[in-house]
Design a protein around this nucleic acid. Structure first.
Lengths: 333, 333
DNA sequence: GCGCAGTCTGATAGCGCTCACAGGTGGGGG
DNA sequence: CCCCCACCTGTGAGCGCTATCAGACTGCGC
């Protein structure tokens, strides 16, 4: 920077002003500085800038497993949106759900002087940590159930589950089971709640949900169990597509036709959902939108002086996509 | 830090020494400093540290689409390995494959004073950029075909494709088609090469590969085309699982039994591969290992003074996983 | 002619850390 | 007895930027 200043015949401060689009720099001077920068191949050192400003223009993302479909998609769009807003992205994953792991992740991010934090870990444990975040650090949770004061961006899980279950009800199904996600995941619970609401609203008996861990394998296991335990079931709402696909396979192996004898609805609308056998009826989540809205929220809070958040969660709607894994009920053979 | 020093009754330098595990600090002094840090809730400012050391202990990852299965998995394990090595991860994606986009991504990372870079963009265009990286910046490419001087970590794509194709050959298939990935992807080309080698080695006629874009949709389209154009084909090697799944669906819709009439082999071994219909025979890639090895390479190069890389690429073996989408050839009905 | 606001620029002082150096101890060998 | 070396600690400078203040130079109105 000193070199640039010297070559342009100005002070380092003027160079800094040019860099920061400060008004009150003569057009001619600006041009001279720009030229000098180009000539020397100058690149501003953001570390020094961050130190001086005590702000890094970087957002930290705390995630649990970034290889899962939802988090991966959100992270991807988050980075794009951040880039658009002139922010960098720093990723940290937590090895487990313990509060220490979270605290350590936050510490690492704070040590980096991040300007804001996105918590992409939709487990209950994560929520508790949010309240423990430094009060002056803008944060946003990608999940429901964020404590008051912490802004959040969420896909409407309950409504999605409602739509999915209602769809089954409208097709005439009365014996509808649910395969839920892990107990400590907020989204798993929200989807269960939506299912439960739709069931009781329709006056149907609510079975105890089977529990999976989001994986196709656990969906398969659930399918096997379902077939044994409740052969009368004709409709299943599965909490995500990967489990749904495993369940479909288990039923198919047992000779059950889908959607002829059992209708299955998933959740996520993974890219390949339309090309499974049968094409999966599922609930679409707009993760790209989630990423964008997170950055919006963060940028707004970074800019504002009010550290305490008063607003409502940002809710991104979910949408049922009807494909071929669901059909009107028929007496089961 | 000054506060900690004062409270502990030492100089700021001693505090720094404690922080950096410097030898030659009396045990008692160390304890006193540690105590003071705990009492004040002190957190070292890594930005300042990075500025002073001109090293940030951060690795930058340049990716194209982090929501794709391979990159997402690699990124995830990369972060874990980096954490283990005391490094942070900074993610940058490139919106397109143009050299400007890459140059900008590199610039952003350099401006952050990253200690090393992982290029997770397996396109040809990325390779060209690698040579343009600052010479003193350790870098590693996750792809084949990296230019000499640039270390790389790769899953053995050619061998995986060889295994897959040989498997079909051994099952008695002679009419074997290939659905490849996009032209500008190095991995797509490597898999095609492996297929081609196995075909010529077996003395079989090599058809022009169909081209997909990794998506299930493009696999479906390829399946439709394949069925029309080459009804005599009984074996297909598809360059990734998502396309394979789309192709399976297209053939199934056309009334083709898999694996009865056509055998299909994929590539990637996505988590749900074993639960598709039929369970997909595919080539497993150990992305976790790739991530770990990348960090290994980077750490080694960051530590060493030799900027110019002489070694060979790190090759992570791939492994054929035989499931139920392949079967011995039968005359096609 | 004077003042004053508006425009432009430079000097100086940090941001919170590490590095290089200069000490100050104490003990063992010459 | 002295010197040297291993141990331990403190002092100063500086990483490359931004913030703050103080100045200098215009043009305008009274």
């Amino acid at each position: 920077m000193a070199d640039v200043a010297q070559l342009a015949g100005v002070s380092h401060q003027t160079v800094s002003r040019v860099l920061n689009d400060h008004p009150y720099v003569k057009e001619e001077t600006r041009a001279r500085v720009l030229e000098a920068m180009a000539e020397l191949g100058y690149r501003r050192n953001l570390t020094a800038r961050a130190l001086a400003r005590r702000q890094s223009d970087t957002i930290g993302v705390i995630a649990f497993d970034t290889s899962l479909y939802g988090p991966a998609s959100t992270l991807f769009s988050l980075e794009q949106a951040a880039r658009g807003a002139g922010l960098e992205v720093h990723v940290v994953t937590v090895p487990d759900m313990g509060p220490e792991a979270f605290a350590e992740a936050v510490d690492r991010l704070v040590a980096q002087s991040v300007s804001g934090v996105v918590v992409l870990a939709p487990q209950r444990a994560a929520v508790q940590v949010m309240v423990g975040l430094p009060a002056d650090l803008p944060a946003v949770a990608v999940e429901g159930g964020a404590p008051p004061g912490v802004p959040s961006v969420v896909v409407d899980q309950v409504d999605g589950a409602l739509q999915a279950t209602r769809h089954l009800v409208e097709l005439g199904h009365t014996e509808i089971a649910h395969v839920r996600g892990p107990q400590d995941w907020i989204e798993a619970e929200a989807r269960r709640v939506g299912w439960h609401q739709a069931m009781t609203a329709a006056g149907l008996t609510v079975r105890e949900p089977l529990v999976g861990d989001w994986s196709a394998r656990s969906g398969y296991d659930a399918g096997v169990l379902l077939h044994e335990r409740w052969p009368e079931v004709t409709g299943v709402f599965v909490a995500n597509d990967h489990m749904a696909l495993g369940l479909v396979r288990a039923l198919a192996e047992a000779g059950v036709d889908i959607p002829g004898q059992v209708s299955v609805v998933g959740f996520d609308d993974i890219a390949e959902a339309g090309y499974l056998r049968p094409p999966l009826t599922t609930v679409h989540q707009d993760f790209a939108e989630v990423g964008r809205r997170c950055v919006d929220v963060l940028v707004e809070r970074i800019g504002s002086a009010e550290r305490w958040f008063q607003g409502q969660p940002v809710v991104v709607p979910s949408r049922l996509v009807v494909r071929a894994s669901t059909a009107p009920v028929t007496r089961r053979g």
